[in-house]
């Protein structure tokens, strides 16, 4: 098997994982214009929740995905109503601090409850390798994550483009001032959007639980990558996030092999800084729609 093809397959699948985590973040930023620094910690909470459901209730993680997404929808909407909504007109600094504070509290709360040990969902099926037409060998769990991320993105895009509520959500993003004049309740849209974005994280957590163990700082491990993905793809662009995630997945896989394993993140952070400087709207972002 050609090592390059294997690396590309690994990178693409890793990209699927990143995409799954990033779509919620980019949706929330694109519509509500708040960068949720606690996004990674929500993922961490989701991983623990899946672990508890699997180890205590014997629930299959993939079965847990839907109820977890629903619960996370309400968690997100609640967080928006209770903490973000009162700060919508505040200085952006204050919003950043609020989400940073939530993230810090969640990560350390998890440390208190579960200690720093790794908690893994035992699902050997997901870790088994499957052969892709003889060109590469990848784990089944990764494949599932890859397809779920595409399905979720497709469903979200269809929702935003084809339903009245979806159109209203986009309307709020494009013109906050005019939307209420159409009779759209902007605050309700914000809560719903925050809920959907957080629900995506819940879905991601359940799908990723068989692949990644839960530990208190797992959120910051993923969220920095998610930020890179979202900026690369264009803040607020769902399609951009998926493509950005694939690019970062490939960069990580190839740079880890051809440059140095411990410098792969340096490479994509360099890409991130380069994008911020040269094209702050991202690869697929529309100027003015940022």
């Amino acid at each position: 098997m050609d090592i390059l093809l294997q690396l590309i397959a690994n990178g693409a699948l890793l990209g699927g994982v990143f995409a799954l985590i990033s779509i919620g973040l980019t949706l929330i930023f694109g519509i509500v214009r708040v960068v949720n620094f606690a996004h990674g910690e929500f993922l961490m909470v989701g991983l623990y929740a899946t672990w508890i459901m699997a180890s205590q209730l014997g629930l299959h993680p993939y079965v847990a995905a839907l109820p977890l997404a629903v619960v996370f929808f309400f968690l997100g909407a609640l967080m928006q109503r209770a903490i973000i909504q009162p700060l919508m007109n505040a200085d952006p600094h204050i919003q950043i601090f609020a989400t940073v504070g939530i993230g810090t509290a969640l990560a350390n709360g998890a440390l208190m409850l579960f200690s720093a040990d790794l908690r893994s969902v035992d699902l050997p099926w997901a870790r088994q390798a499957t052969d892709l037409w003889g060109i590469a060998s990848v784990s089944r769990g990764n494949l599932v994550a890859f397809f779920v991320s595409f399905a979720a993105t497709g469903a979200l895009i269809a929702f935003l483009n084809r339903t009245h509520l979806g159109r209203a959500i986009r309307a709020v993003a494009q013109n906050r001032y005019a939307a209420p004049l159409m009779g759209i309740d902007v605050n309700r849209i914000y809560a719903i959007t925050f809920g959907i974005g957080t629900g995506c994280v819940g879905l991601a957590a359940a799908v990723l639980a068989p692949l990644y163990p839960a530990f208190p700082t797992v959120g910051s491990f993923f969220v920095l990558t998610a930020f890179v993905v979202v900026v690369l793809g264009g803040m607020g662009s769902l399609e951009g996030a998926v493509i950005g995630a694939l690019i970062i997945g490939l960069v990580e896989s190839l740079a880890g092999y051809y440059i140095a394993p411990d410098l792969k993140e340096v490479v994509y952070f360099a890409i991130f800084l380069g994008i911020l400087i040269v094209r702050p709207a991202g690869l697929f972002g529309v100027r003015g729609n940022e």
Binding site: H164, R167, A168, R170, A171, Q174, N175, A178, M182, G183, I184, V286, G288, N289
Partner: peptide
């Protein structure tokens, strides 16, 4: 207007 939406979508939002 909602600049990144079609005229039709803008009109539909008028009847939200």
């Amino acid at each position: 207007l909602f600049p990144f939406m079609t005229v039709r979508e803008n009109l539909m939002l008028g009847a939200y």
